[in-house]
């Protein structure tokens, strides 16, 4: 049984449909990349999985349990956490305070929180240096690290990261993806939402979206040949 099963997901905003029956599965321990151009429906897919938006139809199952339409706090408690597009760190709070709030659903577990903070600082030493600095005063890359770190503080089983590399220099994007690899190796299942085909290098599974539907699903070695993917699906805009 897959950790995440999305079945015929339909969703949109107001009366404007965006997703027209999206189905895919992600196995426990994998890193999946959800690729697509602007407006393909990637963000809508993940926000409907984590409960920021309520799906119009279809099913989302996590670990065998139907979680369709649950609220974000309920899903965080179950172990599903989204690092949102645009980072959305708490600008006037410090790095440490941002991390603490990431652990809200397990705030009674002081030892666990301390261990998670240590882990995040290990992944992103830059955050340790800026521990007491206001999040809003940091660079975009540092805020991205903080947003991922804050997501990890919930000790998720499934971490969804929306546009981790957007606006980052290639070097910084590489650092972030390397940490994503480490997170995945520690046992967390990861879904990367990306326009950046380079993310395929870090993936076990590729899902390509176009106009609200999945047009390609692939696993293993076939997705390493990103040139073909690029030519077939992503270069047509």
């Amino acid at each position: 049984m897959a950790l995440l099963e999305v079945e015929e997901l339909r969703a949109g905003y107001g009366s404007q449909p965006v997703l027209d029956g999206v189905s895919f599965e992600v196995e426990e321990g994998e890193t999946a990349v959800l690729l697509g151009l602007n407006g393909a429906g990637k963000t809508t897919t993940v926000t409907n999985i984590v409960g920021v938006n309520t799906p119009w139809g279809g099913r989302v199952r996590f670990d065998g349990r139907d979680v369709t339409g649950m609220s974000p706090p309920e899903l965080v408690r179950l172990g599903v956490c989204l690092v949102p597009e645009g980072r959305r760190t708490f600008p006037e709070l410090t790095v440490y305070e941002n991390l603490r709030l990431g652990a809200w659903t397990r705030r009674k577990d002081a030892a666990g929180i301390a261990a998670s903070v240590e882990l995040v600082f290990e992944y992103f030493p830059r955050l340790a240096e800026r521990r007491d600095q206001a999040a809003g005063s940091m660079s975009g890359g540092e805020q991205q690290m903080l947003a991922i770190g804050r997501g990890l503080m919930a000790a998720p089983r499934l971490l969804l990261i929306d546009e981790a590399s957007l606006g980052l220099s290639p070097l910084l994007a590489k650092t972030v993806f390397e940490v994503v690899d480490l997170i995945n190796e520690s046992g967390v299942t990861v879904i990367l939402v990306e326009q950046n085909v380079g993310a395929l290098r870090h993936a076990d599974r590729a899902l390509v979206m176009e106009k609200g539907t999945l047009v390609y699903r692939g696993v293993g070695d076939e997705i390493r040949d990103s040139t073909r993917l690029r030519e077939t699906y992503l270069g047509k805009a």
């Binding site: 965080v76 990431g102 919930a154």
Partner: peptide, 20 residues
């Protein structure tokens, strides 16, 4: 108290970390 300030600064992220 931190959560109250977070909610006023970034409502979406406040929900996403499970605060409500």
């Amino acid at each position: 108290g931190l959560a109250v300030m977070a909610a006023s600064q970034e409502p979406v992220a406040t929900d996403l970390v499970g605060i409500g």
